[in-house]
Deep mutational scan, measured.
Amino acid sequence: MLYRITVRNADGEKLEIVVEMSEDEVRALAEELRKAGYEVRVEPIPEGEEP
């Protein structure tokens, strides 16, 4: 499935990426980023919607 991941650092800089991963993989990635001090938001992209 496609997911949009938005990551912000302490300075407020934002990075937005689209990935194709399983829900478990995305959850693990988000958890690791949060542990590293980043603010993370994950949104699933519905099938048929443009990323």
Rank of each mutant, 00 (worst) to 15 (best):
P44H: 13
D24K: 05
A28C: 02
L33R: 01
T6Q: 05
G48F: 13
R27G: 09
E20C: 02
E23T: 07
R34I: 04
R41L: 13
E32I: 15
A10R: 08
E47I: 13
E25N: 13
N9I: 09
K35I: 08
D11Q: 13
V19S: 02
R8G: 08
V19A: 05
L33S: 01
R34A: 06
R4F: 04
A30K: 04
R8F: 12
R41P: 00
E13A: 13
R4K: 06
E39I: 08
R41Y: 09
D24R: 02
P44W: 08
Y38W: 06
V40Y: 01
V42M: 04
E20P: 03
E32N: 14
K14M: 11
V18E: 05
P44R: 06
E43R: 07
V42E: 00
V7H: 01
L15V: 10
E39K: 05
E13D: 09
I5G: 00
V26L: 04
E47V: 15
E25M: 11
E25Y: 06
P46A: 12
R8E: 08
E16T: 09
R27Q: 09
P46E: 09
T6P: 00
A36N: 13
G12R: 04
P44Y: 07
D24F: 11
S22F: 09
D24P: 09
M21V: 05
E20R: 05
M21Y: 03
D24V: 10
R41M: 09
E25Q: 12
R27H: 12
V26E: 00
G12H: 04
E31F: 07
E31A: 07
L29H: 03
S22D: 06
E39D: 10
K35D: 03
E47W: 08
P51Y: 00
L29Y: 15
E13P: 07
N9R: 14
R41I: 07
I5K: 00
I45N: 06
M1C: 06
N9Q: 10
A30C: 05
E31S: 13
E49L: 15
V7G: 09
R34F: 07
E32V: 15
G37R: 01
E31T: 11
T6W: 08
P51W: 00
N9A: 12
P51A: 07
P51G: 09
I45M: 08
P51Q: 10
R41K: 13
E32D: 08
A28T: 09
K35S: 05
Y3I: 07
I17P: 00
V42Y: 14
D11L: 14
V40L: 02
P51N: 09
A28S: 12
I45V: 12
R8Y: 11
E20L: 14
K35C: 03
S22L: 15
S22N: 07
E23W: 04
L29T: 04
K14D: 10
S22T: 13
V42L: 05
G37D: 02
E25P: 01
E13M: 14
S22A: 10
R27F: 14
V26A: 08
A28G: 09
N9M: 14
A30I: 06
M1E: 06
E23Q: 11
L29W: 07
E23F: 08
G48A: 12
P46K: 14
L33T: 01
E13W: 14
E47Y: 12
N9S: 09
Y38N: 05
I17S: 03
E25L: 10
Y38K: 03
Y38L: 08
E50M: 11
E49H: 12
E43P: 00
E31P: 00
Y38H: 04
S22V: 06
G12A: 03
A28I: 11
G12Q: 03
E32R: 14
Y3M: 03
E23C: 15
M21A: 05
G48H: 13
I45F: 08
V26S: 02
G48D: 06
P46W: 10
R34H: 04
V7F: 14
R34D: 02
L29K: 03
I17F: 07
E32S: 12
I17Q: 03
L2C: 07
V7P: 00
P46M: 11
E47C: 03
I5M: 04
E25C: 03
G12D: 04
V19P: 00
D24A: 07
R4H: 05
M1W: 09
A28D: 07
V26F: 02
I45Q: 05
I5F: 03
K35W: 04
D11N: 09
E43F: 07
